[in-house]
Design a protein around this nucleic acid. Structure first.
Lengths: 343, 343
DNA sequence: TTGTATGCGTTATCAG
DNA sequence: CTGATAACGCATACAA
């Protein structure tokens, strides 16, 4: 764009076509197509002149034509359950999108989001099955949405987190919840805690059960008791309630692992409200490393959940699938413990 | 989708085409195309049978083919200056996107975002000029990005907020900053304030100058003095600094209008730090009604900035432009005063 | 390795 | 008002 475009016609000239490039380079359209698509079987000299012509004309392939001819759309859709407004309000979604976009930027694929709760329920169905998309990313964590179910084998799908149904034959990427929880417990043990409780998540959600399992295995490895379990639903309020129940048991308690930061925040408040100090009296470790971790005082020691990486990995897997390359069915992302003041 | 898809071939059958619908309905492809696109000139009976066939086959037009034939992409892009990650972190962008998506859901258009700061600078250029898009929405508020400049008249463009350059021949939608500021000042006056200061925004940004103008006109209408002006750059820190300068003048001051909530929050802190009460000693009104408005105590009385509406309106205008319908060059959205505790 | 010819699913032009 | 038919820009068997 080193030349000014001026005011000329007011109508820009039509975009250069493959044919124009072919003419300029003195080859056939097929050859241009080959070099543009990186086919190896083309003479270096011809390739050169084609590339020159491409630059000279500032040629860029017409997406629609390419799609129509190749039956590939080069677009993948991110299927989310909530309404568009809620998606952007939810930092988890936003961060997943960020990761997806980051990876896709290095490819030819475009991303488009469709929220399945939109007006016409069948519309999403038809759109996805209508050959408008090469693959789909599903981020329907905790939601009754199953618009992807009928996709069956029509399209490659990658899930964010282990899906509740058909986990055994689905492609998905998840954080290593169990390992993360284990690390949290080990930290607690290492720092001298012996009576370690947990506020677990819902047991009908993979993260809920896996994090509880991690807590259990950590305790078992150290020969400690695993009786101090209360359940919450990942909300602050449920964390408060669970903490009250834990305290009400009247058993010794000097360490707490909450299955997510929101519940940890709730527990935080209750602990302090009871005149107990954190971490002196009760050390607490959360999970996720989200906004709640740093908004409480003392700041939460917690297990970092690499959400952006998760998005990146999902996109990567999906593209591999689309392009017919083999891909591992499940990708488990490592976590890391972030030590702050609470433990 | 009332029938189970089963395990059959593993490969779903090809999407139904216009031709198949035509065959089933016993008409020509052209006719099908007409009813699908809502052309009036088609016999009601034929239209009916076509519609039946469409439903029966669950037909959905192939986007690529339609685009190729009609030279229209049904895609609009949202051009943002920041990196993808920052976009999602910024509530303003997120909310604009929400509004845009909301409107677009009622149309056939798809939205795709391109962040101009991506890798190849010319890539965005080529993409936009390459006939891949019907129009663009620019949300480059306060940023040195001008990747849209070379778009010239190639594509319809709608800006978020009055653009600094070429404001006289650009299409844009903005909130009525002056009116909002005026309402803020009037509220202050109505509640008995007489010595009303302002912390204005940067004077090289439209919202900065318009909000200052609104404050001035409110004061003028009431015959009050407009000498108490200090400037900030819309950050909390600048609000604090400006408030200190205001207080240091030693003049009577019982009311403050800050050009945005962040600066108001900064002023808040300084006022209280000086042992002054809000609103008893100094009543303060902000602008934007964002997170900062409710995160300070006492909560901020402020001018609501309808960001989602702004996104909606932008999308609406752009679609009108694309479809060749006349559109007003500028759309000014009304604001509303949200009265909380600070004034 | 290169070119030729055909088809992708729609829209649009033009007769009828 | 309706139906042939020619683009639309590219990929890809197939032939050379």
């Amino acid at each position: 764009m080193e030349t000014t475009v001026g005011i000329e016609t007011g109508q820009s000239r039509p975009a250069p076509t493959l044919e124009m490039v072919a003419a300029l380079a003195g080859v056939s359209r097929a050859t241009v197509s080959r070099v543009v698509n990186g086919s190896t079987s083309v003479a270096p000299e011809l390739a050169q002149s084609v590339e020159q012509a491409v630059r000279a004309l500032n040629y860029v392939p017409n997406r629609a034509a390419r799609t129509l001819a190749s039956r590939r759309t080069y677009t993948i859709t991110l299927l989310v359950p909530e309404s568009t407004s809620k998606v952007f309000a939810d930092p988890f979604f936003a961060t997943v999108v960020e990761g997806v976009a980051k990876y896709l930027n290095s490819t030819e694929y475009m991303l488009n989001m469709v929220t399945s709760s939109e007006a016409d329920p069948g519309k999403t169905q038809r759109y996805l099955m209508g050959g408008n998309v090469d693959g789909v990313l599903v981020v329907s964590h905790h939601s009754g949405d199953h618009s992807w179910e009928h996709l069956n084998d029509a399209l490659p799908i990658v899930f964010a987190g282990r899906p509740l149904l058909n986990a055994s034959d689905s492609y998905y990427v998840e954080v290593d919840n169990e390992e993360g929880a284990l690390a949290a417990v080990q930290h607690l043990i290492t720092t001298g805690r012996r009576n370690i409780a947990t506020i677990a998540g819902p047991q009908d959600m993979p993260p809920g059960v896996d994090r509880l399992a991690g807590w259990r295995s950590g305790l078992a490895a150290a020969g400690l008791d695993d009786a101090l379990v209360e359940y919450g639903d990942f909300t602050v309020a449920s964390g408060e309630a669970a903490m009250r129940r834990l305290l009400a048991r009247g058993k010794p308690l000097d360490g707490l692992f909450a299955a997510n930061d929101q519940m940890a925040a709730g527990a935080h408040a209750v602990i302090q409200e009871h005149g107990l100090r954190i971490p002196e009296d009760i050390a607490v470790v959360g999970f996720d490393d989200d906004l709640f971790a740093t908004s409480v005082s003392p700041a939460l020691t917690t297990v970092h959940h690499p959400i952006s990486d998760l998005g990146e990995k999902m996109a990567h897997m999906l593209v591999e699938l689309i392009e017919g390359r083999p891909a591992h069915r499940v990708c488990r992302l490592p976590t890391s413990l972030v030590v702050r003041e609470s433990a």
